[in-house]
């Protein structure tokens, strides 16, 4: 019990700290934190289904739907408010997630993973062939407003308002997911991963539980996509729905581990750091460095980076 409350406290302190240090941080750090947080939302969504033993190689689909939903709202509907735009993105990904969940919740293992990939590549194909959406070049998204206020677009660092909004969205999402994962509905995920027959004979619906988890993951991935598009100010099919993007999320999810709702954001920040430095200092072999990082984590921390924090925790409890 105290453990659960501690997570809530830590998340709250992290939110306050992240927002408080924004004005004094250098631009690159602010941008990197904001990017890690929005990508971490997608990984948080993957974590929800991974706890039920399901891996999706196609969550770029929902990431892209969130991004395109937001971008289309800004460009074609003329909506300027950032919160409404993010909401549009979430609605787009949630709707598709809901519809597809009826079919996808029947599958497990590699079939589940690849069916998601198939749907994401379907969307990729549609987007690449849509001239009006800029095809492979995508299109730019104007700087949104926040309750009527428009931050200056000349700045190279992420505006305090966008940064604050992303922090707030991450805070609310992690608290909600934390609450969910500790509920009976959440724990059914672990039970399903372990033994579906027993879950069925205990009287719970496996399919319904998986559908709910899948839709939650679609909501979070859509939210992440919407935030990322606002951060970059541009949307392309390759940066959102392409399979390499989906693979990257799975990569970060494995790097992070599924032990706690904070893990995806730590993993995501770690990933951004390694990528940034690897690109800067070893541009020819940066992908190799990423691969080596994942290999080391899998070999020495099979439960992801989070196990570092967990094992520290255990030692403290023992003393």
């Amino acid at each position: 019990m105290t453990h659960q409350n501690r997570t809530v406290w830590c998340l709250t302190i992290a939110l306050i700290l992240l927002v408080a240090v924004q004005p004094v941080l250098p631009g690159w750090a602010v941008n990197m934190i904001a990017m890690s947080l929005s990508n971490g939302l997608v990984v948080l969504g993957l974590m929800v289904i991974m706890r039920a033993g399901l891996v999706s190689f196609g969550h770029g689909l929902y990431f892209g739907l969130g991004g395109y939903g937001t971008a289309l709202g800004a460009v074609f509907l003329g909506i300027t408010d950032a919160f409404v735009l993010v909401l549009l993105g979430i609605i787009a990904s949630t709707f598709v997630g809901f519809v597809l969940s009826f079919m996808i919740a029947r599958y497990r293992g590699i079939f589940f993973a690849l069916l998601n990939l198939a749907f994401s590549m379907l969307l990729f194909g549609i987007l690449v062939n849509s001239i009006v959406l800029g095809s492979t070049d995508g299109f730019s998204v104007p700087v949104p407003s926040y309750f009527g206020y428009v931050p200056s677009s000349a700045e190279t660092r992420v505006s305090f308002l966008l940064y604050g909004m992303i922090c707030l969205l991450v805070y609310v999402s992690t608290l909600a997911v934390h609450r969910y994962l500790n509920s009976t509905m959440g724990y059914i995920g672990e039970a399903i991963r372990e033994n579906e027959v027993r879950v069925d004979y205990l009287g719970a619906s496996v399919k319904q539980a998986i559908m709910v988890k899948y839709i939650i993951s679609a909501i979070l991935a859509g939210m992440g996509g919407a935030c990322t598009v606002l951060l970059i100010g541009h949307v392309t099919p390759e940066d959102t729905v392409y399979w390499t993007r989906s693979g990257e999320f799975v990569f970060v999810a494995i790097l992070s581990g599924t032990g706690n709702v904070a893990a995806p954001f730590i993993g995501s920040a770690m990933f951004e750091l390694v990528r940034t430095y690897a690109l800067q200092y070893a541009p020819e072999v940066w992908q190799m460095l990423l691969g080596a990082t994942l290999l080391l984590v899998i070999m020495f921390l099979p439960s992801g980076l989070w196990s570092l924090i967990r094992s520290h925790d255990r030692k403290r409890e023992q003393t």
């Binding site: 659960q4 609450r179 969910y180 500790n182 509920s183 009976t184 509905m185 959440g186 724990y187 059914i188 672990e190 039970a191 372990e194 033994n195 027993r198 879950v199 205990l202 009287g203 719970a204």
Partner: peptide, 28 residues
Amino acid sequence: FPKLSVFDNILIALGIAGSGRNNGWRPL
């Protein structure tokens, strides 16, 4: 549930048994 503790096995069974009346959202 082989990878979970004996206690967690029972806890999940209790949770599912008690979740019929729409309180599956309560902490396990």
